[in-house]
Amino acid sequence: MSVPKDAGWKDVPKAGRILEPGCAAKYETGGWRTYRPVHVPENCINCLLCWVYCPDMSIQVENGRFKGIDYRYCKGCGVCAQVCPGKRGNKALMMLLDEEAQGAEGDTK
């Protein structure tokens, strides 16, 4: 919804009504996240299993290679890190606490 982040209870439409059609894309569900996946390029073999399993199309791919993570919609479910085979037992995606991982490598926000 296109409600300003500093809006209070007097500012929002009554009863949760959505007065703007097609605005779901503006709802950045990444705000729910506690943990975020962080990419470790030296361990990535570009198998793209993370892209296959991501339930929210948050893994970005370009020319058949891992490009980045769209944190606007990534809810931090951790499926990508779970399925990542990594390289020699070292994962290419690790889950870090969101506030600690701000600005870490792979952050495309």
Partner: peptide, 24 residues
Amino acid sequence: DNPVTVGPLDLYDWNMEHKRQQAE
């Protein structure tokens, strides 16, 4: 001409504000 959605899912992010409106 002015399409709206009523009764959508309203979780912990805004539900309390909507209840405050109801109280008001």
